[in-house]
Design a protein around this nucleic acid. Structure first.
Length: 478
DNA sequence: GCATGATCATGC
DNA sequence: GCATGATCATGC
């Protein structure tokens, strides 16, 4: 290393000084950073940029883009312990990609991995003194623009460098998330952790293969290695709120003050209108009932939460999907739950780990807003329930249905046409207790090309109504 | 009454 | 214009 490089240009005790120096990175590619350092060869592997799940693999991470910034720009050696990267300033350095959508909006490309979860020791930590919070309380975010067409990662350009500290309301939610994760480990359920258990801070999977498993303190069951991470949805919010100025965000539910449990707060707000009929709610919130839009009950839930539109900041940040559930007089749910249609040709190229549906269920938390028909056929609000799919149901049942769907497509879909209606050998609701495959389009023009070139009505995965019913709190069935 | 296939309605 | 969430329609 040259003398030029060794002379530090920043005060390592001062976050602001570190940030200011870091901002010299803006506009440069990683290649330029190396060249301006001492011009020496870059030793990182210039692997394919479009690498699904690269964040999962520690090997690629080491010697990756983050390390270039550490060693070739800030000139420190990775400390490898659990302290922040700049221990005297309490600043953690994170180099992370964002991307531009076709419609011009910016999104985080990945979750932001903070630190590995040590199952054996984390159960003795409190949030304020945790390794996690030491690394998450003040982060120097170095954002580079990910582009699919750039083949060599060294050619990615750094666009934003900024200190970030979660605001107080977010910190409350992050602390609660931490407690939920740690409590699950204390219950001996580290192997059942799911990223969708929590809102902003998730327990993200870190194993490339199923051979990699770790011990946990209160169960003999081995668990997948996981890391604390800010979810992609949360990082997209951070990007659009604190990093890229002037980008529109959604209306928050909590407009002033702070709450300790977000989910309890939401449940309380919804419960204020428990037993109201849809008509009552329309009157209260001035919703025109004559049109009776299909999303009426969802709209009413947003109105109750004080939201004018159909998006809430906290839900977007936490990847919460609002789903309306209607229970019939017979205490059963009439409809199955649909999801976006899949593309036949894309599905057969997926692995289960990176499959669109598996990923969606792994990362999405649901807010069920439950309504129930009375004996006169009137629909009453009954309350709400936060839910995510339990690990076993996802990794066993849904996996089975996904695998069969892929197999059926690869083998060549068997199609019959009876009285103008198609029938096929996709997995049916009667074959699996959790999920099935059914058409999902507008009409018979809404088709997709099969791997063998034929076209067929678009399909999607559904969750069985009987399964959803089994997951609902019993209080709704009284 | 349920399973399965078909289609609607809205918002982005 | 179509993706998405939701619901209808038919046959067994």
């Amino acid at each position: 290393m040259s003398i030029y490089a060794i002379a530090k240009r920043y005060d390592e005790k001062s976050p602001v000084s570190i940030e200011k120096y870091g901002q010299r990175l803006i506009g440069k590619t990683f290649r330029q950073v190396c060249e301006e350092d001492d011009g020496s060869e870059v030793s990182i592997i210039a692997e394919s940029a479009s690498n699904y799940g690269e964040e999962h693999e520690d090997k690629k991470r080491k010697g990756g883009l983050g390390e270039i910034i550490e060693e070739r720009f800030f000139h420190y050696k990775t400390n490898g312990d659990s302290r922040p990267d700049f221990p005297e300033a309490g600043v953690e350095l994170k180099v992370t990609p964002y991307k531009k959508n076709k419609n011009g909006t910016f999104v985080a490309k990945e979750r932001l991995i903070i630190t590995m979860i040590d199952y054996l020791t984390v159960v003795y930590e409190t949030f304020e003194e945790s390794h996690l919070w030491a690394k998450a309380r003040l982060i120097l975010l170095v954002y580079y623009l990910y582009k699919k067409e750039i083949e060599n990662r060294l050619d990615y350009r750094i666009d934003y460098v900024k200190l970030f500290s979660p605001p107080e309301q977010d910190k409350r939610i992050i602390r609660h998330d931490f407690d939920v994760i740690v409590e699950k480990i204390r219950e001996g359920k580290a192997h059942e952790l799911s990223e969708s258990d929590t809102l902003y801070l998730g327990a993200a999977p870190k194993a490339a293969t199923s051979a990699n498993r770790r011990r946990q303190p209160f169960s003999a069951e081995l668990a997948k290695p996981r890391a604390f991470a800010f979810k992609s949805s949360y990082m997209t919010y951070v990007l659009n709120t604190y990093i890229v100025p002037g980008k529109a965000t959604y209306e928050p539910i909590i407009k002033d003050g702070v709450v300790d449990s977000f989910e309890d707060y939401i449940s309380g707000r919804i419960d204020d209108y428990k037993d109201c009929t849809v008509e009552d709610l329309c009157n209260k919130f001035n919703v025109d009932i004559t049109k009776r839009p299909k999303n009426l009950e969802a709209m009413l839930a947003y109105r109750i939460l004080g939201i004018k539109g159909n998006h809430a900041e906290e839900f977007v940040k936490a990847n919460i999907a609002v789903k309306i559930i209607r229970i019939g007089q017979n205490n059963k749910i009439k409809e199955n739950m649909s999801f976006p249609a899949f593309k036949f040709k894309e599905l057969i190229e997926e692995t289960w780990e990176d499959s669109a549906f598996g990923t969606y269920l792994r990362e999405t938390r649901f807010l069920f807003v439950v309504y129930k028909y009375d004996l006169e056929g009137k629909l009453h609000l009954k309350g709400c329930q936060f839910w995510n799919m339990p690990y076993d149901d996802l990794e066993n049942q849904v996996h089975t249905v996904w695998k069969k769907t892929k197999q059926v497509l690869s083998d060549g879909l068997k199609i019959k046409k009876i009285n103008g209606a198609y029938t096929s050998n996709f997995p049916k609701a009667s074959e699996n207790p959790v999920s099935h495959v059914r058409p999902h389009g507008r009409d018979n023009r809404d088709v997709d090309e099969l791997p063998d070139g034929r076209v067929y009505p678009k399909q999607c995965f559904w969750l069985n109504n009987s399964y959803i019913l089994s997951q609902l709190d019993k209080r709704f069935l009284k």
